[in-house]
Nucleic acid binder design. Structure first.
Length: 630
DNA sequence: TTAGGGTTAG
């Protein structure tokens, strides 16, 4: 009964128009409308649509679909709304597929509420309707909403397909959700789909499970370049840089060409390993994409992190388009390399260019201030960030300020700020304070901070060592023993110092106490000669460094063979004169090595760059870019 | 006759 009433209601305008219009006129009107739609003449099509509506006429769905696509390509929101109103005029319901097109239009306009309204009004929804909505929420980072929709979809008995799975997988933040979806995918027999595989690889990699990503990848019979990019990117994102580069070689052997995305990940892997030579080789292949923003951002980062600032500046200056990432990368890169004033100048240029800073940019700016001890600037940027840019300070910003205050000798202010933090301080925050205490020699506060670090990160080997040294320095042997027992109980071993150096595109590793390098005997001999020559000009090996817990002669011997010194000796033996020696290491450089490298740079007339986990030291002519402040 | 995948910065 109800459906008959609806039909009559729908037919009324048609019947009315039939009385006043001949069928030839109607055909003409409809033909004209269709023509305008297919010609993508939006103004004429809309006028024709109005005429149709006033005569109670409707065209076929394919024509409306064309019209909506035309609105989409012109980003014509208002016109899109007019079409929607026309389609629902007088209680009509567009066909299911047309409603799907409408949903898609609102999604593309980024009007999710409108999209959802159309979706809600649909008497019937198919897998496309659901997937369009799920994918829209997934893209707009409303992950929870996307997963909820998937559950509702399943409850309504609509079966997800490859489109649904590849969209919803991107929403997963928890491995348990991914595993559940993976089961569904296998059950439905959709695992072989290249899009589903690609999504699985990505999500496994993003959630820190690159091995799972690799097993999905390896099970694939045929793949495409994008899947290769996914897997290489996945490893690079998880700091598995060696593996990423090995996969890149496999990709080339398999006959695929490296494109922007591949090269970006390869650069990231080179960045992680400080492989400047290989990175530069990749740069050569990038020339044809020389204005690719993302690739250039990766290049700037690579050159900064490899300590090659001139190249970084060259790429940065040659970029026609820069985004917030470009600027932030350059600012942080300069700051890490000790060029704080230049970093702040770049920040000023960034503001002048009209690019709005984000919270990461401000971290870079505060980082610059903290590395150069620019107390007033630091306070200014910290205090004004909320007012000027609407950026609420988070842990990283507080961390920079605590570092800045602490190392400038204002430990009390640092503690005060730490207590005032709007967010809970974490192990990194306390470790920052601990570092400042070390510089200032405040052992009482250091003990407190170290205890806090261990409370929050009970597996942090370095902090146990610091704490144990603090106790040893004040002769608290019981406490020393207690710390050692705790470390033993938890199975914590001190991370051995390790340094890497690239020679002829090959990485050489030197690990403290490890004799496996084929030239270790020669390297040690070279180092011994160097030290002897340095002692001759007044070098006194430092034996009082707090991070060491050895004593006397044994300690001196250990310092003598700190991994970066071995890497330097190897570099001097193998790299041609005039070539910058670049070393990456896993622990922060100690005071003795810092003095040693300054002297060595003068004595050997060499530039040496050391990258530690936090920052870079450029040694040249007896000086370091950090100005002995690190 | 509608919906889907990869890359960047602290």
């Amino acid at each position: 009964m109800k459906s008959l009433t609806t039909k009559l209601k729908l037919l009324r305008p048609v019947l009315t128009s039939l009385c006043s219009y001949s069928s030839t006129d109607q055909t003409l009107l409809l033909n004209e409308f269709t023509r305008f739609c297919y010609q993508r003449d939006l103004p004429k099509a809309l006028r024709a649509m109005d005429t149709l509506q006033s005569h109670g006429l409707w065209a076929d769905s394919a024509t409306y679909s064309e019209l909506i696509k035309c609105c989409m390509s012109h980003r014509a929101v208002h016109e899109g709304n007019l079409v929607r109103r026309h389609l629902y005029f007088n209680g009509r319901q567009p066909m299911l597929f047309l409603a799907n097109v409408l949903i898609n239009m609102y999604v593309k306009f980024n009007l999710l509420t409108d999209a959802h309204n159309v979706f809600d009004e649909m008497p019937l929804r198919n897998v496309v309707s659901w997937t369009t909505m799920i994918s829209a929420y997934s893209r707009s980072k409303q992950q929870q909403k996307a997963l909820e929709l998937l559950v509702s979809m399943l409850r309504e008995g609509v079966r997800p397909n490859v489109y649904t799975y590849s969209s919803v997988l991107r929403s997963c933040k928890e491995m348990s959700d991914v595993r559940m979806l993976h089961c569904g995918i296998i059950k439905e027999g959709l695992e072989s789909d290249v899009f589903v595989r690609s999504a699985l690889i990505d999500v496994f990699a993003k959630l820190g499970e690159p091995e799972d990503a690799l097993s999905v990848f390896d099970e694939m019979v045929t793949g495409d370049a994008i899947v290769w990019n996914s897997i290489i990117g996945g490893f690079a994102q998880n700091s598995k840089n060696d593996e990423a580069l090995k996969l890149f070689k496999r990709m080339k052997i398999a006959g695929f060409t490296a494109e922007q995305a591949t090269l970006t990940s390869v650069l990231r892997a080179c960045t992680g390993l400080t492989l400047l030579e290989l990175g530069m080789q990749a740069h050569v292949h990038i020339v044809k994409y020389d204005q690719d923003l993302i690739l250039n951002n990766a290049l700037v980062d690579m050159y900064c992190k490899c300590g090659s600032l001139e190249d970084a500046r060259r790429v940065f200056n040659g970029m026609k388009e820069r985004d917030v990432i470009t600027w932030s990368t350059m600012i942080s890169g300069l700051a890490q390399n000790g060029y704080s004033q230049e970093a702040l100048k770049v920040f000023e240029s960034m503001k002048a260019s009209g690019t709005k800073p984000n919270y990461i940019t401000i971290v870079g700016v505060l980082f610059a201030c903290s590395h150069a001890g620019l107390l007033e600037d630091g306070w200014y940027y910290f205090r004004s960030m909320k007012k000027l840019y609407g950026i609420v300070p988070v842990r990283e910003h507080y961390g920079c300020m605590i570092d800045l205050l602490g190392k400038a000798g204002k430990l009390e202010d640092a503690v005060k700020l730490l207590n005032e933090m709007e967010c809970e301080p974490d192990a990194v925050t306390w470790r920052t304070l601990l570092g400042a205490c070390r510089v200032q020699g405040n052992m009482v506060l250091a003990e407190y901070a170290a205890k806090k670090v261990i409370e929050l990160d009970p597996d942090d080997a370095g902090t146990y060592t610091v704490l144990s040294n603090i106790y040893a320095n004040s002769q608290k042997w019981d406490s020393v023993e207690e710390i050692r027992t705790r470390m033993r109980d938890r199975g914590i071993k001190k991370e051995p110092g390790c340094s890497w150096i690239e020679v002829n595109k090959k990485i050489h590793a030197f690990i403290i106490g490890d004799e496996s390098h084929p030239l270790i005997v020669e390297v040690k001999e070279k180092l011994k000669q160097l030290i002897d020559r340095m002692i001759g000009i007044g070098y006194v090996p430092e034996t009082n460094f707090v991070l060491q817990d050895l004593e006397g002669e044994q300690m001196e011997d250990s310092l003598r063979h700190h991994s970066e010194k071995l890497a330097l000796a190897f570099g001097l033996m193998t790299l041609p004169l005039g070539k910058v020696i670049r070393i990456r290491k896993n622990l922060r450089i100690c005071g003795d090595c810092h003095v040693f490298f300054k002297l060595a740079s003068k004595l050997e007339n060499r530039s040496v760059v050391i990258r530690d986990p936090i920052r870079y030291h450029h040694f040249e002519d007896g000086k370091c870019s950090c100005g002995d402040y690190w």
